[in-house]
Amino acid sequence: MMTNCLALMGNMSWLGWLMPLAVLSLLGLGIAALLKYLFISSSSTPGHGADS
């Protein structure tokens, strides 16, 4: 299966290499943003921070 995938990516020139990298980087950024949102929102309490 890996051989077929690499052969297909080779036939698509640069687009075959760009799209998997773009999807993986967007997925990683999405997971990082979700984790940041979950940990920042759960640890912050009202009355503490720059606004108070």
Rank of each mutant, 00 (worst) to 15 (best):
M2H: 14
P20Q: 07
F39Q: 07
K36E: 08
C5F: 15
T3N: 12
I40L: 11
L6G: 00
A32W: 10
M2W: 15
S13W: 07
T45H: 06
P20F: 04
P20G: 05
S43H: 07
M1W: 14
L6F: 14
W17R: 04
S44D: 00
S41Y: 10
D51E: 13
L15E: 04
G47M: 02
V23F: 08
T3E: 14
S42L: 10
V23Q: 05
A32Y: 09
L38A: 10
G30R: 07
L18V: 12
W14P: 01
I31K: 07
L6Y: 12
T3Y: 15
G16W: 03
L29W: 15
L6Q: 08
M9I: 08
P46W: 15
C5H: 08
T45A: 12
S52W: 09
N4Q: 14
A22C: 12
L15R: 02
L27V: 04
G47R: 00
Y37P: 01
M12V: 06
M1S: 12
H48M: 08
A33R: 08
W17N: 05
K36I: 08
N4T: 12
L34Y: 12
L21A: 15
L27E: 07
W14N: 03
L18H: 05
G28M: 10
L15M: 12
L34V: 09
G16K: 04
T45C: 02
L24C: 10
